[in-house]
Write a protein that binds this DNA or RNA. Sequence first.
DNA 1: CGGGAGATTGAGCCCCGTCAAAAACAGTGG
DNA 2: CCACTGTTTTTGACGGGGCTCAATCTCCCG
Lengths: 219, 219
Amino acid sequence: MRPSAFLSPLAPTGQLPEPPLGGASGRPVAIYARGEEIYGEGAPANRLFRVMFGAVRLYRLLPDGRRQIGAFYLPGEVFGFEAKARHRFFAEAILPTGLATIPPSADPEFTRALLTVALSTLARTQLHLEVLGRQMACERVAAFLVDIAERSGGERVLTLPMQRADIGDYLGLTVETVSRIFSKMKEAGLIRLPNSRRVEILDEAALRRLGGHPLSWDA
Amino acid sequence: MRPSAFLSPLAPTGQLPEPPLGGASGRPVAIYARGEEIYGEGAPANRLFRVMFGAVRLYRLLPDGRRQIGAFYLPGEVFGFEAKARHRFFAEAILPTGLATIPPSADPEFTRALLTVALSTLARTQLHLEVLGRQMACERVAAFLVDIAERSGGERVLTLPMQRADIGDYLGLTVETVSRIFSKMKEAGLIRLPNSRRVEILDEAALRRLGGHPLSWDA
DNA sequence: CGGGAGATTGAGCCCCGTCAAAAACAGTGG
DNA sequence: CCACTGTTTTTGACGGGGCTCAATCTCCCG
């Protein structure tokens, strides 16, 4: 499969200038257990992380407990930057996860690379915004599946690292709705579900039709 | 009023390093008419804009015509950067609007300033995401009003540059719902509506309670 | 004063959230 | 290997918040 430059701008496919942000080269990898907090809201934001393996969720909590997951990070992707000195999100490992730490640097080359990553993250967040603002539940799930498929290498069979509740909190839906839509998609022959964590995409074109226009900014 | 460093990071309050991105100093200002397109989807993204007066909406269209407004830009704010070489959004003047153009530069100082702006924009987009993903219609409208109030100087009486349809497409709601909620808020004594474009905030605390926690990342 | 765009209000319906229960699954210890 | 327990997922029934459709009202501006 052709790597989508946009959906995987942070992946180790070579788009990111390797020297400043890239080097996992010899850097120590910290291991986090499933569910372990990487940093919390209010923690000082003084370093970046690159996912070496596993997966990470970034989220915020409303006072009454509602949770919005802002992003998932898969192997190769970079997260942890903030506009201010402190984090406004929680970051947690979804699975046993290895993270390489990228210390900050005043090097212009580093700044440039960070800008690239920040702009890619912004672009993805804006796309996410469109999904939450203007798409129906089934379109959201379809967009999510297509996105994850692209980011995890374009395999036809993918293993979701997160559970249904995470998907719901990412898409602005309830667990029940997500589950129901998975079932509908299975009935409709769009996907197969060997088990709850594994999804085989049978009709990618139909999913893309549901999920919006992921190619319009690819040029 | 105390300027909120976060909600107005792009405003001419001095937070942004002035030399590289800041200078409206002597730069020509292009005037756009109400409704005029500043750039379209697919246009080359090769310069930034600073709003001198007026207001701008940034939006995307789904194939079937649904519109998601990703952001509004008020005087002092900067927009126009993209991760790729081409725009994925449409930008339009909402009112007669004056824009100063900021040409790109390879200067490290410029890159650093651009990074600051990009990170602020990302932070705001993530907040918007939370509103769309997890808040009820009335909470969205409340959050919107508080946000606009802060960004336009914290006045108690504000003049909305955009119409109801824009607010709806920004908040993921229909015009009718936005209108109904304005009416409810008026009945409840939270706001007054001298006319449809003008909003007087009577009970800011109640609006903030509705609209989430805009102070949690202010530290 | 008339025309048109935008805003408001009403009626009805549907998608999806809520509540509840059953089913599938993952460990754990016997 | 199997009972036992807690977690996650699925499915069902029901109600409500917000969308759709449609009519009316308000405000500009000629």
